[in-house]
């Protein structure tokens, strides 16, 4: 019988701790598929961040360093400089990358570190219980913005893919989403491009993935995916914002 679907080799054959409908499983799979395609699993060092993504080492079958909150790009910088022949990627959430770790991501990108950053934007702090994130939508209610995010007091959600695309050190910056089959196909393609940048030593690559958090949003998985399409994508447009080598 012809096998038409299987688990990527770069993922372990285990059940995840993620909530029903969570996007992390899809994003893990896309990253693992890209690693499989380039045959780099045994060469890869993952850098886990703090948040739901911390258990990277439980799911990816690669060596992993766990970074302090927000510091994954600095940890990845140290690892990549020490082992320039390895593939180093970070996997970070929005609180980790766009709040406490803003300095680290900006400067790793600006130095043009030869690493790949996977940024999962679900507009909330998932693991700590759904608090307001730097990417939380205006008006969105969270456990620390019970009246909804107020742009006058809390500022506007940060668009990281566009922001990093302004930096000369960045090779590739794109935003994708995993809320529909069509968007997943595009995400798969651009995830591969992000890793290709590092494999071909073309510079820093950044891929922002719009994701859902049904548990903390208080929505069903279906409603959450619809919300992503209707509310998030208009504010966080999908697309490639920088692609210096035209890969």
């Amino acid at each position: 019988m012809k096998q038409v679907f299987q688990k990527p080799e770069s993922l372990k054959d285990v059940q995840t701790h993620f909530c029903p409908g969570c996007s992390h499983g899809s994003v893990h799979r896309l990253a693992a598929e890209a690693m499989d395609e380039f045959g780099i699993r045994a060469e890869t060092i993952g850098v886990a961040s703090v948040g739901c993504s911390v258990f990277l080492y439980s799911y990816f079958d690669v060596d992993v360093i766990e970074a302090p909150h927000g510091r994954a790009p600095a940890v990845a910088t140290g690892a990549k400089r020490a082992r320039p022949d390895r593939i180093v990627f970070t996997y970070q959430g929005d609180g980790d990358l766009a709040a406490i770790g803003t300095a680290e991501i900006i400067h790793a990108a600006n130095r043009g570190e030869d690493i790949t950053v996977i940024f999962v934007n679900n507009t909330t702090y998932g693991m700590t219980g759904g608090q307001m994130a730097p990417t939380t939508m205006v008006g969105q209610k969270t456990s620390t913005s019970p009246y909804g995010r107020d742009q006058n007091k809390d500022g506007y959600p940060i668009r990281m893919a566009e922001l990093l695309a302004q930096l000369e050190g960045v090779g590739f910056s794109a935003r994708v989403a995993v809320n529909s089959p069509k968007n997943v196909m595009q995400a798969k393609k651009l995830m591969k491009t992000a890793f290709q940048y590092q494999v071909e030593k073309k510079g820093f690559s950044f891929i922002e993935v719009l994701a859902v958090c049904p548990t903390n949003w208080g929505m069903s998985p279906l409603a959450a995916n619809e919300h992503l399409g209707n509310e998030m994508i208009p504010y966080f447009p999908l697309g490639v914002y920088r692609n210096t080598s035209n890969l």
């Binding site: 910088t77 690892a79 400089r81 020490a82 082992r83 900006i106 400067h107």
Partner: peptide, 26 residues
């Protein structure tokens, strides 16, 4: 070797963490 003037002391110590994790003296 590699010398990095980090963006902060916070970044510098975490670069040390990352390099050390790969087994090099730093």
């Amino acid at each position: 070797g590699e010398f990095i003037q980090a963006e902060s002391e916070v970044a510098a110590i975490n670069m040390l963490l990352g390099a050390s994790a790969t087994g090099v003296r730093c």
